[in-house]
Design a protein around this nucleic acid. Sequence first.
RNA 1: GCGGACGUGGCGAAAUGGCAGACGCGCCAGACUUAGGAUCUGGUCCCGCAAGGGGUGGAGGUUCAAGUCCUCUCGUCCGCACCA
Length: 967
Amino acid sequence: MAGRNQFPFPQFESRWQRFWDAEQTFRAWNPAEVLPTGHPFTQRHGTDALSSAKVASGQAPGKFYILDMFPYPSGAGLHVGHPEGYTATDILARFRRSQGKNVLHPMGWDSFGLPAEQYAVKTGQHPRVTTEANIANFTRQIKSLGFSYDWSREVATTDPEYFKWTQWIFLQIYNSWFNPATNKAEPISTLTYPADCDTEDKQRAFRDSKRLAFVSEAPVNWCPELGTVLANEEVIDGKSEVGGFPVIRKPMRQWMLRITAFAEKLLADLDTIDWSDSLKEMQRNWIGKSEGAEVDFVVADSGSQIPDAGSAHPASGIGHQASSPKIRVFTTRPDTLFGATYMVLSPEHKLVGQITTPAQAAAVKQYQEFAATKSDMERTELAKDKTGVWTGAYAINPVNGEKIPIWIADYVLATYGTGAIMAVPAHDERDWEFAKKFKLPIRAVVSPADEWLKASTYEKEPGYPPTAWTPELLLTHRSYYAKHPETYPTAVVETGDSINSANGEISLNGLPTAEAKKKITAWLESKGLGQKTVNFKLRDWLFSRQRYWGEPFPIIWKRDPNGVLYHEALPESALPLLPPTLEDYKPTASGEPPLARAKDWLQLPDGSIRETNTMPQWAGSCWYYLRYLDAKNGAAFVNREVESYWMGSAPSSKSTPGVDLYVGGTEHAVLHLLYARFWHKILFDLGHVSTAEPFFKLVNQGLILGSDGQKMSKSRGNVVNPDDVLVEFGADAFRLYEMFMGPLQETKPWNTQGVEGVYRFLGRVWRMFVDEKSYAEFEQNLTARPERGEEFLDQVQLHAAVQDVAPTTAQAKALHACIKKVTEDLEGMRFNTAISAMMVFTNEAMTWAVKPASTLRTFLQLLAPFAPHIGEELWHKLHRHTRQAPPSLSYEPWPNFDPAWLVEDTIEIPVQVNGKLRDVIRVLADADAATLEAAAKAAEKAKPFYEGKTIKKVIIVPRKMVNLLAG
RNA sequence: GCGGACGUGGCGAAAUGGCAGACGCGCCAGACUUAGGAUCUGGUCCCGCAAGGGGUGGAGGUUCAAGUCCUCUCGUCCGCACCA
């Protein structure tokens, strides 16, 4: 589109961006900070607005912390999806600022990450160089959109001054343990040692086993392609979330964070925050709480006669040797214990070798190898067909003394529960499939629902097909099921009354599931056979990566006099611990992380060796929202007073606890958002922050699809580059379009013609304000001397129709309706309908021969949060015209609507006959029921529909409608 | 399979249980114009000349009145997925 612009955005957008930068218009001030007198915040709120006294007494302006998920600065640059959330938050930031809030609206960079490192491996260029270039590009792009960020608070997770504190927080975690008695993280110094920890070595081992950051040797997700381990959360269908490469399980020494200790709090506190149901549900599912019982099964016959040293308490079960090993299982259905006809251990279960009989040893070993070579992906894909082998061993069912076979199968996961299950094939689908395949016995212990019985009955059963389901017939089938569950097509997994569940001491028969669970659990506990247990799907967080481009751990390794390796934290004074300079960023030939290449860095003079793993990318994003509060603080990660003001626990905050609004993509639903909540809770317990949750309200923006309705991707060629849109239509139109597309949370396709629509709207706004002739002159001058564009811009005159007159009633009504709609829609984040309301106003105002300056001025205030550049430009023109010094548009109080203007004298209401619209009548707004009825009956068009009939009833809803019921 | 969100014109979408389709795109017609891919005006759910009738994925229900509430059903998207 080479033709003329509808309005001179290329000239005024850059002008106002420079203005905001130079004036520090959006600089947010901390409590007790000295406020410059010239700043518009000070001019509105006073020089002492944030004095310690006012903050302490609650007299200071309330805070509003509005946060975007900071981006990873990729080489590809900004995507149209990024500015969707950023625009929404910017509009709200400007809105709240105008309403008198002290608004904190920062931006930064989640700049550690794999792409820069992969580029370094290929080219040898230091990731910092790549990262800084990408940040520069992202900064340019984001600034070109005119967002009101306080850039003085910018952070980058790769900045040593930032990751110094990431490392510091890691040390807080390392030096803490979770005290179950207080249900809190506490300094490791509060740990009390058991009596048998009587040596320094034993105490150290005990201490290290309790830390919230600890070392584990467990099998981990290793991605050969990426050359690193990954957290469970980063593995999807057995493939890496980044890149989609295969992931295998491999035992490695790794750092873990004890997030499982916080599972209950992470779950419970979801009820205290304002997030979408779907997001909360995703977190709940991920945490995966299930309540049940752990039950011990004693092994009856085992392959070896090695007594189990661990089973100090002989179970009081029936007929077993006290020296036999015990297998502990977790079940959510202890009520079905009488139906356990076999057991299954995961192939990796540590008792497998011990219990396997010589006869089965070869088969078991073969199966274990078979299971081990399968990747998680294969295990999932082959899930349909159950596999397993018998160990040759039996266990004793503790409730009935029955000998049941012990199998191993990979449908039992080593990492969940105890890694072993009691199999109740009649009432569990997986056990059912397995039992059917291997011809294991199936015993019914729960009576099915009538519906299930009716639906599952088939010809082999007596009395089939039934002519009618009499209670007697159902009873017959019920008792048949109780004896022959294996003849039915499926397992009965629903709850129901217990059957076949009694021994000499206890009977569950006839009890509904919930009661049966309680009763059997109490019995198990009284016998020392088991106890009530809560299990979580959530695993501890695998926190180390074999990468270069991440925060090094502030940890060193030493050997004690016995040659045992142990770890030790670096002192705070050693922070930040910088990564070494390398020539080559690949892992070493022996598979050591890249940091191991830096021999000088690795070895300390006292002989200790540095940890060579680095932290995952999530580390920096776990707390960046806290660093924004006090980004330049060299003495602490955040000052306490500053933290309590912005996070809402101080009296002045006058707000919700935590970040007031956090907007970002749904892709971080379980990863970032769970990790950040976890870190925040540790910091809260340790007294470093003042709220239990970081993000009070969270909104997920929807995905923006390509114009073909497909996800945007390079390969589809449907990617829209914001830079291109900006050149053609400008930042204001871009912002407006992203908000006008539809509700923020919805997925919606991009449509360039839609951008033209809002661009035309802004053009109409421009023409409503400016004199057409002077704009034409501007364009001619601009063509001749483009470099003098801004000078010419100031010569563009206001439209002659804009006059300093009082608005007419109709004009005031139009304006106040618009104020009301825009204000309410902003409160509800309904940006699309707010824009539509401004379009309605503009369409009407365009028809006014004389346009009151005061009305247009107020309208500009409504428009400015959405389209700030044109807002500022016209705001200044308008005030030059009225010869007033222009106050700061950003800090001018938000207009209030006067309900008096919105009261209509007469209104149109529909007249229905038998619920169908027949006519519309115009009546006085406050007309009473009798008047409405009379008016409705007088409505000509409605008459034919009830003439000749009697009106039996009249429904009258004042101000709404009249319905005549005739018959 | 389980959990969540959602189905409204040609398209993006609006509608405290009370006139379905605001606003925008696209399209049609007209005006201005050397020109229009600028701007302005009017029209635009379907059937029907009209009166009128039909219409919010489908089927029922509640109600004077249902896009909105309830039940069932079909479909789309997202998340989880052998979690005992």
